[in-house]
Design a protein around this nucleic acid. Sequence first.
DNA 1: TGTCAATGCTAAATCGATTAAGCACGCACC
DNA 2: GGTGCGTGCTTAATCGATTTAGCATTGACA
Lengths: 344, 344
Amino acid sequence: MKGISIKDIAKQAGVSPTTVSFVLNGKGREKRISEQVSKKILKLAAKLKYKPNQLARGLRTGKTKTIGLIVEDIANNFFANVAKIVEEEADKFGYKVLYGSTEDNLVKARGLLEVLEYRQVDGYIITPTPNLDKEIEMLKNARKPMVLMDRYLPQIPTNYVMVNNFQGAYDAGEYLLKLGHSKIALITTTSEQIQMKERLNGFTAAMKAHRASFPRKFLKKIPFAASKDEAVSQIKTFLESNPDLDAIFFSTNYLGVYGIECFKDLGIKIGDDIAMVSFDDHDLFRLHTPGITCVAQPIHDIARNLIQVLMNELNHNNQQINQVVLPATLVKRESCKKRKKLTV
Amino acid sequence: MKGISIKDIAKQAGVSPTTVSFVLNGKGREKRISEQVSKKILKLAAKLKYKPNQLARGLRTGKTKTIGLIVEDIANNFFANVAKIVEEEADKFGYKVLYGSTEDNLVKARGLLEVLEYRQVDGYIITPTPNLDKEIEMLKNARKPMVLMDRYLPQIPTNYVMVNNFQGAYDAGEYLLKLGHSKIALITTTSEQIQMKERLNGFTAAMKAHRASFPRKFLKKIPFAASKDEAVSQIKTFLESNPDLDAIFFSTNYLGVYGIECFKDLGIKIGDDIAMVSFDDHDLFRLHTPGITCVAQPIHDIARNLIQVLMNELNHNNQQINQVVLPATLVKRESCKKRKKLTV
DNA sequence: TGTCAATGCTAAATCGATTAAGCACGCACC
DNA sequence: GGTGCGTGCTTAATCGATTTAGCATTGACA
């Protein structure tokens, strides 16, 4: 039932637990333990399948070899994929992952942070919710290793790993313009978070750069807290009151998914009646008929960079701040065709 | 930097750490600590925002208040959704979740189990890979609280929570027959795992019950280890060599997704040229045009039952075995129409 | 007055590892 | 022969909580 402890090995080897600890931590040489004794201990440890008790070790050293991962929603395609690779990468360094979803809710995020502190995680990967500034600031001041993902807090310089939201949205806008579309709407959320702002900025910059008009009425913001049904109904209303649109850019994957649902319900044919691009890729976008053009995030790179930055902090107590911005890729599918009719 | 410990409270309250521990663990009455002292300690603890050190507590009590969750693939819709609810439910009982994906690979599963043991999790929720019998048996013998999910090992009586695979597949088969289809294929994996066998059995039972023929050549097994491209190409070959099929039942969500991809590539119109049903629901199935009929698993119920069974084991050291089988729901969409042409 | 029990609390061991400090021994050197 | 130093190991404290055993004090009762 109970595991093998360092004492058991010590007893069998006829030495003190200290000696065993030194050897098993690779400090045999440094601590001048003889080759003979070292070998004997290592053999015994292997034979008894000794597994150090992480709790005891953690209690003494203050390190748990665990990292906390806070995502917006683990059931969301993007976050689930990142989480998976984060876990794999962390494992390579001997770290395990404790995770939780915030639903972008401040209270939930606070709760998660509290639990993670309580569990003494060594480092944090955080998708910050709105107004999480104070908590992030505190972690920063406590010099906790931490990386933000998907978004950052402009007021607080921290490590982060993100996709280039501006460029992604810019590329999408430019692409639609080059296909000949001119009446292009942007459907986004009311969220004031930086990633959403950047997507808005990138899109409008593309419009401006190509001297295309982008009137207010072509910008639809869906309340951040809206339920799925509310969001779908708002998008439908928007579509119905703007029947002459050429194309729509959806600023996140779930809005894009809702959009498809609206088009389906309203009998609007994607590609033929209207062009669409969505931020983020998704099985649905790939396999939908027609396929949905999207701005894909480099999920593998994001996850790898997150762990790399975190490990840097954990191991070298780095002072410098790492801010990684990765390029987004425009994946062209059939949801965007060249505009045929030159007049409405 | 360092947290508040029980000693700090003891010092400030002018009592011993023992007393503080008793009170904070709700044993004040039992251990005959006076109301006065109890109140003072509770107030101080609240004021200082005392958080017990889980490592120390775990070291002493042998409990970590952590459960290990082993899924097949956290990036898979079904598992991600279950994981999310498992986490929420576990949280209600004060438990955190450590998770990992096996990719249905025995070696990965062994590695995960080892890490979880090493981390001293209190209980396990496991999606067993093939040939994991020995490890499960060992956990069982060690009386570790454990629940299997999605499948079980017929040779080893254990707790499990699953959907009724037989009934789900039966319903799907029967539904297709009642729509007038007769040449119905089943595309499944070569996996010998129980959940896949049951789906096969349920489907063939429906055929038999309705005296429909189900020739060998209508059963296609895709090698369990096949890559996505291999699988897609095999499905295509199968479709091309059986051009007169009325309908296809895919036994898992990812095969259904591959199927859609094949139909798309081959220019086969789902619903019109062929009917399809897939096991598991998915955003893609819901929003595809036409919508894909599927056998949906009760994800919430599954997750809730998993935690309930596990908590039972954890708290009452239950001896009895809990085997929960939940009903699957046939979600009817447009991918299955009534058969029109009575002759080919 | 002495015994016993109840009351209210504390001392100290414990979980299993890490680590600062130091002990004993042998050898070299003046 | 005493001092100093390197070698090879051990002792004991420590992390923070839990828990067993038990110590004072008080009051009841014979």
